[in-house]
């Protein structure tokens, strides 16, 4: 019953989901998670769920990674400040 492209999408999602967890540097992780979000969106299309896929694109591969990047930027900046103070 399962289609070939669904298998491919599932395997990719599993692999990139694992990568998201294993990449411990937040900045690199934000990039990986954006990629992961897009893959998930693709999987949702493969599952005949275009509404969910659209949400996933705007939230999972744009909205959330943007928030992550902003948070990381703020943290980096404070780290730099602290280094300068020392």
């Amino acid at each position: 019953m399962i289609e070939a492209f669904q298998i491919v999408a599932l395997v990719l999602v599993a692999a990139s989901g694992t990568a998201v967890v294993l990449v411990r540097d937040p900045l690199r992780q934000a990039v990986v998670v954006s990629f992961y979000g897009s893959l998930l969106a693709g999987l949702f299309f493969a599952f005949q769920a275009p509404d969910v896929a659209l949400s996933q694109i705007v939230i999972g591969s744009v909205g959330v990674p943007l928030m992550l990047l902003m948070a990381i930027a703020k943290v980096r900046k404070r780290e730099l400040e602290r280094e300068r103070d020392e």
Binding site: P26, Q29, F47, A49, V75
Partner: peptide, 22 residues
């Protein structure tokens, strides 16, 4: 070892529910 990393890992757990439901 990093809270931002931790938050992202939590979203991975949650994405399991999307795949399960769909």
């Amino acid at each position: 070892r990093n809270l931002i990393h931790l938050v992202v890992c939590l979203t991975v757990v949650q994405s399991g529910t999307y795949i399960l439901l769909l």
